[in-house]
């Protein structure tokens, strides 16, 4: 890619980032209510109701009575210095709160991504090879149905069946509380045991997208001339399937996985709430509920950066995997990750 193109691309990312940061600032403030307004609760909930005088004190204390433009500039300059602010509700620096929660969400999302890739590729290629047979039709139906069920429903079903029903998995949380582990292996086992259901739920909801993509792109490739050539050369069937067909069919997956990162994080929010998993998702829900502006801004910013970062990585990875996209002409002609246009790279 030429220097000009690279700087254009960087500018694109910078503009997106600025837009996101502005939206991050504006959206929470556009919601009615403020962080110190508590008149009511959910049934049975205890709330420290603030009188007008108390509310005024806190609004002043946190500078929320100043003009919005002033608050905006202050926010921008603080972010530029790497300071995400102090949470009104949680009474801690936003960065500290997020740093404690983010690893759990990343762990969940990464595990679910890997799992859904494995499931999706296995089932997708099986379907493609059995195209037209009942196995394919059955799988297709199941996958389409699964893809439409919201994550929290699958989560609840798994929770009731596997955790409450037969007691294979814990009901909630990410670790056994107040446990004293004898070894770090015990600790890892405990964490994996707790992560199993949330990760399974999240991967189940994401598998169908990958399945459909693999099934379609593999279907296209299996009909290509070079497949016939490979067979004519007398290559063994597994070699044809995995080296020649699957490898080429997987290229669009890179883009797909990057693009669905946003949806994955969105799914994680729901799943974390079902399993009381201590990631960013639960935090986000609570922060919206209490209108904790700095925390909301911080979470949105971190999530936006993660999603943008993944997209950027996918850009790089794709260029590495598919040599044609290294020249600008081909990139313009094909577009990044255009499905079905892949030509053999191994022949």
């Amino acid at each position: 890619m030429s220097l000009q193109k690279t700087s254009l691309r960087s500018l694109e990312y910078l503009l997106t980032f600025l837009l996101i940061i502005t939206l991050n600032f504006a959206l929470p403030r556009l919601m009615p209510g403020d962080p110190f307004l508590h008149l009511s609760g959910e049934a049975g909930e205890i709330v420290e109701g603030y009188t007008d005088q108390q509310r005024k004190y806190f609004l002043e204390y946190y500078g929320l009575n100043r003009p919005v433009t002033e608050q905006y500039w202050r926010y921008l300059s603080e972010v530029a210095r790497g300071n995400l602010g102090f949470s009104y509700y949680y009474k801690e620096p936003v960065l500290v709160i997020i740093a404690r929660r983010l690893p759990w969400t990343l762990f969940l999302v990464a595990t679910a991504t890997v799992l859904s890739l494995i499931f999706g590729i296995l089932l997708g290629s099986y379907s493609a090879w059995r195209r037209g047979y009942w196995q394919d039709k059955m799988l297709y139906l199941i996958m389409v149905v699964f893809g439409e069920i919201p994550a929290f429903l699958i989560g609840l079903a798994l929770l009731i069946l596997l955790a409450a029903g037969i007691g294979l998995f814990p009901l909630a949380g990410a670790i056994t509380h107040f446990a004293r582990y004898t070894s770090s292996w015990d600790r890892i086992k405990d964490i994996l045991h707790h992560a199993a259901l949330p990760a399974l739920t999240l991967s189940l909801t994401r598998t169908s997208g990958i399945y459909l993509l693999v099934r379609n792109s593999l279907g296209t490739i299996l009909a290509r001339d070079y497949m016939r050539t490979a067979r004519a050369k007398g290559l063994a069937e597994p070699r044809i399937r995995y080296r020649h067909a699957l490898r080429n069919a997987l290229l669009p997956l890179v883009t797909r996985v990057a693009l669905q990162m946003g949806a994955m994080v969105g799914g994680a929010v729901l799943v974390e709430n079902v399993f009381v998993y201590p990631g960013l998702g639960r935090l986000m829900r609570d922060a919206v509920l209490v209108r904790d502006y700095p925390l909301l801004q911080g979470i949105f910013l971190v999530l936006a950066i993660s999603v943008m970062g993944t997209n950027y990585l996918a850009d790089l990875l794709y260029r590495y995997l598919d040599p044609r996209t290294r020249t600008t002409d081909v990139m313009n002609a094909c577009g990044r990750g255009t499905y079905g246009k892949t030509e053999p790279s191994g022949l």
């Binding site: 929770l159 409450a164 007691g167 009901l171 909630a172 949380g173 509380h177 079902v274 009381v276 201590p278």
Partner: peptide, 17 residues
Amino acid sequence: LEFVPVSDAVLALEKGE
């Protein structure tokens, strides 16, 4: 006295959590 998170209070009480 311990406080632990639960996904569903009814299930957690039944299970002795």
